[in-house]
Design a protein around this nucleic acid. Structure first.
Lengths: 292, 292
DNA sequence: CGAGAAATACTCATACTGAGAACGACATCG
DNA sequence: CGATGTCGTTCTCAGTATGAGTATTTCTCG
């Protein structure tokens, strides 16, 4: 970048655009962090301590530290604070910018522009309250977002062994159940946008693997797609497709040691390949052609 | 939305996050407005009047009016100011959010978060300086953005009749030719992101028609794709494809009256259909599978 | 009028997709 | 232990989409 002509520029600028007088807009980052727990899609949420929306769930987020961090850094910091993950664990989390929300009255206190981020995380431990939040936890998305699940019904019965306790972490109370069922501010909208982005993104990128551990079976990968898309997929065709797309997954040469829950052979294990884009893409079933 | 408990909240908030002391971040919108002129992709740019980057080209943009407009409204306003279009003409312009840019020092004066928008416009009249810009004009993207054109070479000779004067509008000077060839601030990066988004977006949406007038020929539509993608397409296959995707275009029943430049029959005319998404999509040639 | 160019249509080989079936490994139940 | 059912994996087959090339007709230009 070129060097500015500091003094002169600064004088002009500040005279015309004094932040206090003309531009009292706050900038925050909010994170839609998604993970899979017990075969259901969950989103990280915090319980608001103060007004407005006290006691309601909200997306984790906070103010960008002016002059000291980029938006990406702010999002990573907020995510780390709320999940309690260290840098190494965060490395395995995919984090991308989702979009910005800046209606003048989305926050009743002042004009706040929020830059939303979307995160895909493998199964994570219970969240922990960070910052000024009263509690934090993973919420099943279909419990909050009207657009949480696509039009379809639930994918299939799907009962995995482990605990089904959905509200992990901090508080034992269950805020957000005030009838609206929604998140604070416009976070319901942000979540819906994040979910749509996630559904679209796993079509043409290998990011579905970001929901899984180091190694996984094709069936586990298929369950990620089924859960995120909310639709059942043909197991045989999915298998063929995944193995035929170059760089999607690579074999570890090993076989799953865990016994299948209801019989069947031990599945082979794979790890994420080196592709950044899937070609050809895995398209969602239906999509009802054009018009929608 | 629920009603805030104003007073208490406001006290807490302001105590902790006084805009002046803790959060002097300015919020702007910048617009990557693309159009086709003489078979080449052009971007709307303004010549900077003051420091920093005085005399350099930059994307049109400006501060969001706190408490008075949303980000979308601010972007539409900036675009209207710079192009001089009225509301009716703007209606035919596609405008969508591109992403936000917030590195602490992207503007040397202070921390500025810029929300970038992407606009697709049909051939427009010369731009007019609006606001504090010294000049405004449509610049051929390959003249500025290193990533302006995809890896490929120029699509094909392509010489259309009219004036090739690229720098329309305001000033007769040609700023930006200081050796770097780039735009001010990080606008080169924003432009590159906008171009990539545009290339991707015309794959699965009918937005290529937004670069054309009310009615157009299949060949004109193909030229949009060729220009944006920077690659020649097979005319016959393109024709078959466009007509086979439901809702992409619909026939007007009429035939082009203008004589072809170098012979050939009069082409049939079409208008944009009602599809929002193309299915199946029109994929860019090659894309070199996975890894990239 | 003849050459060349362009709009559109057609052909053919190949690739990808959805649906279904086959087969063998494994668990659980009786 | 054997019957029964589940599940991972592979195959087959038909329908559809794609890339490349060619044919036909209608123009303009010289």
């Amino acid at each position: 970048m070129a060097e500015p002509d500091g003094t002169q520029a600064e004088r002009d600028f500040l005279a015309q655009y004094d932040p206090r007088a003309f531009d009292p807009i706050a900038v925050t980052v909010d994170v839609v962090a998604l993970t899979l727990r017990a075969g259901r899609l969950h989103v990280l949420a915090v319980e608001r301590g103060g007004q407005p929306f006290a006691g309601r769930w909200a997306l984790p987020g906070g103010f960008v530290r002016a002059g000291r961090e980029s938006l990406d850094e702010a999002a990573a910091r907020e995510l780390a604070e709320e999940t309690g993950l260290d840098a190494a664990a965060l490395d395995r989390v995919h984090l991308e910018q989702l979009g910005s929300y800046g209606s003048p009255h989305r926050d009743p206190r002042m004009h706040v522009v929020s830059v939303a981020y979307l995160a895909f995380a493998p199964g994570l431990p219970d969240a922990q309250p960070g910052g000024d939040a009263a509690g934090a936890g993973w919420l099943p998305v279909e419990a909050i977002s009207p657009a949480g699940q696509p039009d379809e019904a639930r994918p299939r019965p799907f009962e995995q062994g482990r605990r089904t306790g959905a509200y992990g972490g901090g508080a034992g109370r269950r805020p957000g159940h005030d009838g609206s069922g929604g998140l604070a501010f416009d976070h319901g909208r942000i979540l819906a946008d994040g979910l749509e982005r996630a559904r679209a993104k796993i079509e043409y990128t290998p990011l579905a693997t970001a929901f899984l551990g180091e190694s996984f079976t094709i069936t586990e990968l298929r369950e990620v797609y089924e859960t995120v898309w909310g639709a059942a997929l043909h197991a045989g065709n999915f298998h063929r497709k995944v193995l035929s797309v170059p760089g999607f997954v690579e074999s570890t040469g090993e076989t799953d040691t865990r016994p299948g829950s209801r019989g069947g052979p031990r599945a082979r294990l794979y790890r994420a390949g080196d592709a950044r884009l899937l070609h050809p893409a895995l398209l969602r079933p239906d999509r009802e052609a054009g018009v929608r």
